[in-house]
């Protein structure tokens, strides 16, 4: 059963089309990912699905309710962790959660019980009475994760949950997200531009670029499209015999740039001797399984890393803190 049905959803800002005729179904209980570079339209999609931004055209149903005509019921069905910090940093962690419970009309007893549960889930119980200003970026993120879950939404949206975090905090967040999916049994829609994140967490993903879906499948199947492994051979200024490599018949894709020849090959480890024989002299060899980055490259002709600039979350939170409220 589809818990989210997106139907030709489009959002135009002045002259740019941020989300371009998106049609997609997400099943109940899925962990769904929207993977794409900065500016691909991921946040705009989530803001429309959470009723905060009105679609230019098209619509969607969330938990069976129409985004525009039944916005109230949609909001009752969802939780979201926004891309930028959205907790009040003059309040304590506990106060932010209490505020949330009040906004969602939770009875006080249930509210207090859930606060205890979600704080436990994200390991913030002993910091609940500290003012959020004194939290690290990772702690603040965990608090907002706890908050998004507190009212037991049917669908939880996570907009770049690890943006701007150091690798260790990122790893922590992933662990918490995995745990909550196990324990809370909900549908999650996550946006990210980190391949590892999409790969590790999502059961199915849509790769989006310029507001359009370019590929849609499980991470494993997406990588299968490329036919397995990626072999990078350093050839320097030499003259690799690419025709001979092509003649081998099992190499799906050959690319050469900056002194490196990159081949896409099924079962590369077994076939490496043949490849090396065909190509001639090489200076270095690297074999790795195809990544989602390669998949993105395959569909768009660009590298995702190149088109993604870091910054945002951490930067903006610094900015806000330095200003006095």
């Amino acid at each position: 059963m589809a818990i989210i049905e997106i139907d030709h959803l489009t959002k135009r800002f002045d002259d740019i089309v941020a989300v371009d005729d998106l049609t997609l179904e997400i099943a109940d209980g899925e962990f769904f990912g929207l993977l794409g570079p900065n500016g691909a339209g991921k946040s705009t999609t989530l803001l429309m699905l959470t009723t905060l931004v009105r679609p230019t055209s098209g619509t969607a149903r969330v938990n069976g309710f129409d985004l525009v005509r039944q916005a109230g019921q949609v909001r009752r069905s969802i939780g979201i962790v926004f891309q930028d910090p959205s907790s009040d940093d003059t309040l304590t962690g506990y106060e932010n959660l209490k505020l949330h419970g009040m906004l969602y009309g939770m009875p006080p007893a249930l509210r207090e019980q859930r606060i205890v549960e979600v704080l436990e889930l994200v390991d913030l119980t002993n910091r609940k009475d500290s003012i959020v200003k004194h939290y690290s970026g990772g702690m603040r993120r965990r608090l907002e994760l706890a908050r998004g879950l507190m009212h037991r939404p049917k669908v939880l949206f996570l907009d770049e949950p690890t943006l701007g975090l150091d690798p260790q905090s990122r790893d922590h967040i992933w662990a918490y997200v995995e745990r909550l999916v196990r324990e809370e049994n909900i549908t999650v829609v996550l946006t990210t531009h980190y391949m590892e994140e999409a790969d590790r967490l999502c059961s199915r993903l849509a790769i989006i670029d310029h507001g359009k879906i370019v590929a849609l499948d499980s991470p494993a199947n997406l990588k299968l499209v490329l036919g397995g492994d990626v072999v990078s051979l350093g050839v320097g200024k030499g003259e690799p015999n690419l025709d001979a490599v092509k003649a081998l018949g099992f190499v799906d894709k050959i690319e050469r740039r900056n002194g490196i020849v990159q081949l896409t090959v099924r079962d590369a480890r077994d076939r490496l001797p043949q490849i090396l024989q065909a190509i001639g002299e090489v200076k270095s060899i690297e074999v790795r399984p195809a990544s989602l980055d390669d998949v993105f490259m395959h569909y768009t002709g660009r590298e995702m890393r190149e088109s993604s600039a870091e910054g945002g979350w951490a930067e903006r939170s610094m900015h806000y803190r330095s200003a006095t409220r």
């Binding site: 959470t50 905060l52 969802i78 949330h100 906004l103 969602y104």
Partner: peptide, 8 residues
């Protein structure tokens, strides 16, 4: 956004 996404 946190306030406006709440069901009030």
């Amino acid at each position: 956004k946190e306030v406006l996404v709440a069901p009030i």
